[in-house]
Write a protein that binds this DNA or RNA. Structure first.
Length: 486
RNA sequence: CGGGGCGUGGCUCAGUUCGGUAGAGCGCUGCGUUCGGGACGCAGAGGUCCCCGGUUCAAAUCCGGGCGCCCCGACCA
């Protein structure tokens, strides 16, 4: 569909830009039900590629996929106390079915710990059954008060991994391992470098002993939690009598982890790489990596250009490149250029009569460095040979740019709340400070600056000089990172 | 749930102050000419003016009530 208006520039209204770009790049659309959305083919194609990448990493770390039911007995959710406290306000509940009121209401899963533990308890008897490493791809429902496409909708798609281990140490190690898997995926596939670390007590998952998170810095300098990995201890095992017999013949509760990422990642991708012309999709996730736009003046040329385009597509396909030819004859080439740029296809090949004559193609990159030309005239053979490498380079440059942006908007050595507040009010970013560990300080900072404690960063992110002063006064016990968040 | 904005062809909106034949641009359909950065001509289709009630000879417009959406704040992958 032709769509010839410019997007609202990011620096004018980031939120408006985001909404427009999601709708007009045809990633998603609003559904008739408030707070839920339709994921359109271009957006779903990106999600499918994310699934492919993540699923491979899960399999590589020993997991299998399974599927657990959408409906969960209310009593299950209520069993773990902190868990129900955390989720009660956002539950959607089925009370009627088959024309009758149900004896026990059924919750539409907000997450599946409870139903999964119920089943695991049946399946696990011995330490020989452990570890149990299962993932599921599913939809979940959390009734949200305020929603935003991809970032927070009442229903969303995600994966949730649920594991059981024989020891606390092993489960903790697994929690950390999966956090690392997420980080790898985000960097290698999404070209999005997250900050990783431990959540504070107030920010952790309802029912967890410890939560770890990936926090990504969006272009408006707000933080977005893009993935979580939880060490659940024995909290759920106790409530669901998930026990196993140890090597020594003793009965013990299983040690659990759970971890998830969701279609929120698509929103994160948009806000990480998008520009005023639209979305920018990293090649590894792009449903179409190269779009060929044929150009002609008459039927003879059309025929020649078409067959050349098909040949190029076949040759690139052999090299594993995902190519699409835009053959629509009711749109001008210029119109197609704008559309595919808005959708974020990494490379465009323009192919017209002049190119056939010169055995060349016009290669246009979706984005490029300031010192390069976006548009290049390349001999056909060279283009064919180089495109896989060009895609790799494109992927790498996105990660590099995103990492540079994150670092440029990270502030270390901040010592007091006033300074933090100033940074928040002048645009925000990741702010590193010392913290005593006192929740009262965390609360005060939140009230005064609207920034929340994003995480206690992992070692590789910590400042070379560990802060000595707590942001709320007194001595620092650890370094933490603050930002306003989605 | 508070504050703000808005509901009129598919989209963006004008028209509402001061009641009187429902409009524009874009998009869409057909035909023709076009096609290297958002093409053009001609012809055409398309509307319970968010809903319900009231006032009136007459309501998109006035009055009452409701609903929905978007943006900003309290909760959240």
């Amino acid at each position: 569909m032709a769509d010839n208006k410019k997007l609202t520039p990011r620096d004018e209204d980031f939120s408006a830009w985001y909404n427009e770009v999601v709708l007009r790049a045809e990633l998603a659309d609003y559904s008739p039900v408030r707070g839920s959305m339709v994921i359109r083919p271009w957006g779903y194609g990106i999600w499918e590629n994310m699934q492919r990448g993540l699923d491979g990493l899960f399999k590589d770390t020993g997991h299998e996929n399974a599927y657990f039911p959408l409906l969960i007995p209310m009593s299950f959710i209520e069993r773990e106390k902190a868990h129900i406290e955390g989720f009660k306000p956002e539950l959607a509940v089925v009370t009627h079915a088959g024309g009758k009121e149900l004896e026990e209401p059924l919750v539409i899963r907000p997450t599946s710990e409870t139903i999964i533990m119920e089943m695991y308890a049946k399946w696990i008897q011995s330490y020989r059954d452990l570890p149990l490493l299962i993932n599921q791809w599913a939809n979940v429902v959390r009734w949200e008060m305020r929603t935003k496409l991809f970032l927070r909708t009442s229903e969303f798609l995600w994966q949730e991994g649920h594991t059981v281990h024989a020891t606390s140490e092993e489960a903790e190690e697994h929690t950390r391992r999966m956090l690392g898997v997420y980080r790898t995926f985000m960097e290698d596939w999404m070209a999005m470098p997250p900050l990783t670390g431990l959540k504070s007590e107030s920010e952790k998952f309802a029912g967890a002993v410890q939560s770890y998170a990936c926090e990504a810095l969006m272009q408006d300098n707000k933080a977005l939690q893009v993935g979580t990995s939880h060490f659940l201890g024995q909290n759920f095992s106790r409530q669901f009598s998930l026990t196993f017999q140890t090597e020594e013949g003793k009965e013990e509760y299983g040690w659990n982890t759970s971890w998830g990422v969701s279609t929120r990642l698509v929103g994160a991708l948009v806000m990480t790489h998008g520009d005023d012309n639209g979305v920018v999709v990293p090649p590894r996730l792009a449903p179409t990596q190269v779009v060929i736009v044929p150009i002609w003046r008459n039927d003879d040329q059309a025929e020649a250009v078409r067959s050349k385009a098909a040949a190029l597509k076949a040759r690139l396909g052999e090299q594993g490149v995902r190519v699409r030819i835009d053959e629509r004859d009711y749109l001008s080439p210029g119109n197609k250029f704008y559309e595919w740029e808005r959708k974020g296809v990494p490379i465009r090949l323009e192919l017209g009569p002049k190119d056939l004559e010169n055995e060349q193609v016009v290669l246009v990159k979706r984005v490029c460095g300031e010192d390069e030309d976006r548009k290049e005239f390349l001999p056909e053979a060279q283009a064919l040979a180089e495109i896989p490498d060009r895609l790799e380079a494109f992927q790498a440059s996105l990660l590099e740019a995103a990492t540079a942006r994150r670092e440029a908007n990270s502030y270390r050595g901040v010592e007091d709340i006033g300074q933090l507040k100033e940074i928040m009010e002048s645009g925000g970013g990741f702010v590193y400070t010392g913290w005593s560990g006192d929740p009262e300080v965390e609360e005060r900072v939140k009230e005064e600056t609207k920034a929340t404690l994003r995480c206690i960063p992992d070692e590789e992110f910590r400042s070379s000089d560990a802060p000595t002063k707590c942001i709320g006064g007194g001595e620092a016990k650890m370094e933490v990172v603050w930002d306003r968040a989605y």
